[in-house]
Design a protein around this nucleic acid. Structure first.
Lengths: 150, 150
DNA sequence: TTTACTGCAAACATTTTGCAGATGT
DNA sequence: ACATCTGCAAAATGTTTGCAGTAAA
């Protein structure tokens, strides 16, 4: 069963906490900003969110918190087709990939896509030993398809 | 049959030329620098190559040439596991993916990996319409495996 | 001869860092 | 108390741009 959407970002905070990091107000704020975003976002989005809402969180803190969350696997850094990079909240901490809507940026996690077969085939063909892969899928989400968005 | 390695970069030049771009000395130099690289390289690599060898090619020209080659599909921009971006020469202009050695950076093109199945599965699960994907595989090439490199 | 290209330096965007002071545990 | 964290501003990166001159077609 899918957990209810956590608009407070308390799940992110829980992840930080259980990894032994301090729970501070700035981190709570950044977590809430991330939780309040739909889909993929850029670091600059969080920075301007914080500035516009006068939350008093410094740019450096946004970056530092993101870095931490990426290291903990709670957020993943990815690269959009337009060449910009962005971040997405990961619903799962297991290995997975993202499918990102090129219309609204909404992202879904995909687990167990069957990459093992593809990786094995790549190894067979090349003699390389593959130990890591990155898969990013892009397209329109159902809502954006309906509204013919983009 | 596989073409011999083109250390002059003349195949890149041919691509530029046939796309209607002018063939200039700076572009020839950049093409040669790319051809002289093994595997993935960063823009800064080419810039310092050019500077150290006193080739008189400006940083901007390196970037502009790379941009052009990426647009023509002769080079692809990709993102390494370490978070840096780099470029790789594409052997094929068809849709393909790269498998990059995390030891030496050497890269091979992989065509027809069977992503269609995975894409279809992702669409079925999510209702998204996938129209683009990015797959990057990382691991050790045979030579680096043998030398236990990295 | 016309348009595309180049070098240069400055501008720009993005991310990182050093450090003194604040804060969680 | 003590280590971690924060804001700030500066620095470091990485990439793009404006422009006057140059060269390819």
């Amino acid at each position: 069963m899918k957990p209810a959407r956590d608009a407070e970002g308390s799940d992110l905070i829980a992840i930080l906490e259980s990894a032994g990091h301090k729970v501070t107000d700035p981190r709570r704020i950044v977590a809430r900003l991330i939780a309040g975003r739909v889909g993929a976002f850029e670091s600059a989005d969080l920075v301007t969110d914080a500035q516009q809402r006068r939350l008093g969180v410094a740019r450096a803190t946004v970056f530092r918190t993101l870095e931490l969350l990426v290291a903990l696997g709670a957020v993943e850094r990815l690269d959009l087709p337009n060449g910009r990079h962005s971040f997405v909240r990961c619903e799962s901490s297991r290995h997975h990939h993202h499918l990102v809507c090129t219309g609204c940026g909404r992202s879904v996690d995909l687990e167990e896509l069957g990459m093992a077969t593809i990786v094995a085939e790549a190894e067979r063909r090349t003699g390389y030993q593959v130990d890591r892969h990155r898969v990013e899928l892009f397209g329109l989400c159902p809502a954006c398809r309906r509204s013919r968005y983009v």
